[in-house]
């Protein structure tokens, strides 16, 4: 198809007409690039985001390997080694019960991460289902379901969580329930809006005119075009759940000993802040790094996935 290689051999050929069939004017010179490949390319261009992505991966890896590296467990109370400063035996010192802070920090981080992932997952699944039901059924069902969403989202989040935890007690399940009981409303609205928008789009109409079934439309058109949005929602939900969990635990209504997360460690560190600052500093730094990297990566994802920025 490429006629650029045609070269003029003889001077009298200069003004010879070119065979029309050899010319191909529909050629595309830009390289073939799919949606996800294009998004990945744009993401890679963002150096800051790449840095924090590496930080994030390191944090996750360490939360799994950290306890193994130090070779210490995080439960054993060691009476002689209370409140030690960082030294060769305890790399980041010990807490007020003599437990290794290095190991505890990574385990606490792991707990926070797992809670965040599960809660964000619940938020996404519930929000998605609820939102798509609203959008598909429409009419009165939509109205009623929308009012429910409005009522739920008008209750102050923190108060509701506190109440639930006070009533049901502290524990992983209760905490997860408290964290996700209100958070899905935003996702539900988002999904509803997106589906309503997509349903009116011409390619979905075209598919309808072509006789495709509802299932076909959902799988082929609605879902793929909502996926980017959901990934963004997940990336933004995780740091916010981490924050909520930490605040609850910090206030003493989240996890209770022997369970612990970064939040409970912060609470403990805070009480001895004046004498042993590293007990506060270590979980603090980890938490900040974690949330910061999630936020930066989430932002970069939004830029990378936003179709409006595609050129």
């Amino acid at each position: 198809m490429n006629t650029d290689t045609v070269s003029i051999k003889k001077p009298e050929d200069r003004f010879a007409f070119v065979d029309q069939d050899s010319l191909y004017a529909d050629e595309i010179t830009r390289k073939n690039i799919g949606f996800w490949a294009d998004a990945a390319r744009r993401f890679k261009q963002n150096k800051v985001a790449m840095f924090f992505l590496i930080v994030l991966v390191l944090l996750i890896v360490m939360s799994l390997l950290g306890p193994v590296i130090s070779g210490k467990d995080y439960i054993t109370i060691n009476g002689q080694d209370k409140n030690m400063a960082p030294c060769s035996q305890y790399w980041l010192g010990t807490d007020n019960m003599g437990r290794d802070l290095f190991t505890r920090s990574w385990v606490g981080l792991r707990t926070s991460l797992v809670i965040a992932l599960v809660a964000a997952g619940i938020q996404l699944v519930v929000g998605c289902l609820y939102g798509s039901i609203m959008a598909t059924l429409g009419g009165i069902v939509d109205d009623v379901m929308m009012r429910i969403v409005e009522v739920i989202s008008s209750i102050p989040n923190l108060i509701l969580c506190t109440l639930l935890l006070v009533v049901f007690g502290n524990g992983y399940v209760q905490l997860l329930f408290a964290l996700s009981v209100t958070s899905w409303t935003g996702t539900a609205r988002l999904v509803r809006g997106q589906i309503l928008k997509l349903r009116e789009s011409e390619y979905v109409l075209a598919s309808k005119a072509m006789g495709g079934s509802n299932m076909h439309r959902i799988l082929k058109h609605l879902l793929p075009n909502t996926l980017g949005l959901l990934i963004l929602e997940l990336a933004q939900a995780i740091p916010s759940v981490i924050f909520s969990e930490t605040s609850l635990s910090f206030l003493g209504i989240g996890l209770m000993p022997p369970n612990f997360s970064l939040g409970t460690m912060l609470q403990q560190g805070q009480s001895t802040m004046n004498f042993y600052p590293f007990q506060l500093l270590v979980p603090c730094v980890l938490l900040s790094l974690l949330v910061l990297s999630f936020n930066v990566v989430g932002d970069a994802l939004r830029d990378a996935l936003d179709p409006q920025l595609r050129n």
Binding site: Y203, G211, H216
Partner: peptide, 25 residues
């Protein structure tokens, strides 16, 4: 359709778009 930008699903390849109706029927 009127709008050649809005009437084709951006997440599908040309073959998938053209083949859709053939798949359905």
């Amino acid at each position: 359709f009127q709008d050649p930008y809005a009437s084709l699903n951006p997440r599908m390849t040309v073959a998938e778009i053209i083949g859709e109706g053939m798949d359905v029927h």
